[in-house]
């Protein structure tokens, strides 16, 4: 049964990308365990505003685990200690009375801090712009049923396509690698006949952009898969490796 708890939250505060950040600890009393983690932060911000202080800045939007906007490294885990959820779906019943909760931003060279817990993830957009698409214009495409696709292929493509682009994989990777994100898109499109045609070009372009933007080298630790709120599999990374290497050897 949910009850009310008293907690301490130790939160990273940083004015701007250039300024030095620091931790600040806040006491919160009577937080319902039925509230979500972000609602707890709402309560904290309400309190800060009432005290005339500046609220904590953090990214969030849909609050139902699909938009990928929320982030936060909570007690050593991206999206917190619960499994298969985003921060917005994390509830306070995962924490106990008297606990100190440490909240940090995603820390990666690829995701510079904008303010407090808000980071800049436009690198993901840039990688997508480098090749994360099928090159078709609007209109003039064949009938949707003209190309049958095996159900299992479609399902595998869907598994990969479930990525929400939140960046937890980069945040948790000790190498700051974006391979899981990139491989999910490369896999989705390589598995489907529509995307197969430019699969080699796509893999090369997206990997090149990922490397250029300062993400680290994948060493297959598998942490990304474990912490991914959507359980995207590292089999996708194997598939990307294969796509990339075969493309390069063909050149």
């Amino acid at each position: 049964m949910d009850k009310n708890i008293n907690i301490k939250v130790k939160i990273w505060r940083q004015r701007s990308p250039k300024e030095k950040g620091f931790f600040e600890t806040y006491n919160l009393e009577n937080i319902s365990q039925g509230s979500s983690f972000l609602e707890m932060l709402d309560i904290l911000n309400e309190k800060l505003i009432n005290e005339g202080k500046e609220p904590v800045v953090f990214d969030h939007d849909c609050r139902e685990g699909i938009c990928g906007m929320c982030s936060l490294y909570i007690n050593g885990h991206p999206h917190g200690p619960d499994e298969d959820v985003t921060t917005c779906q994390l509830h306070m019943r995962k924490f106990h009375d008297g606990e100190t909760i440490t909240v940090e931003p995603w820390r990666s060279a690829g995701f510079p801090v904008i303010r407090d817990l808000m980071v800049n993830r436009s690198a993901f957009d840039e990688i997508m712009q480098a090749g994360g698409y099928v090159s078709v214009n609007t209109g003039g495409v064949p009938d949707a049923n003209s190309t049958p696709i095996a159900k299992d292929k479609a399902e595998m493509a869907m598994d990969a396509a479930a990525c929400i682009g939140c960046g937890a994989c980069v945040a948790t990777c000790k190498n700051g690698s974006a391979m899981l994100f990139v491989s999910a898109k490369v896999s989705q499109l390589a598995l489907l006949p529509q995307g197969r045609i430019e699969a080699a070009r796509r893999a090369k372009a997206m990997v090149a952009k990922m490397d250029e933007l300062g993400f680290g080298n994948c060493t297959n630790t598998g942490a990304c898969e474990q912490e991914c709120p959507k359980s995207i599999s590292i089999t996708n990374i194997a598939r990307l490796n294969r796509e990339f290497l075969s493309a390069k050897f063909k050149d």
């Binding site: 698409y133 099928v134 209109g139 495409v141 949707a144 159900k151 479609a154 869907m158």
Partner: peptide, 13 residues
């Protein structure tokens, strides 16, 4: 629907 399939949207099959 045609457009989305051409873009690689993995509809159920």
């Amino acid at each position: 629907i045609d457009q989305c399939v051409a873009q690689g949207v993995p509809f159920a099959r």
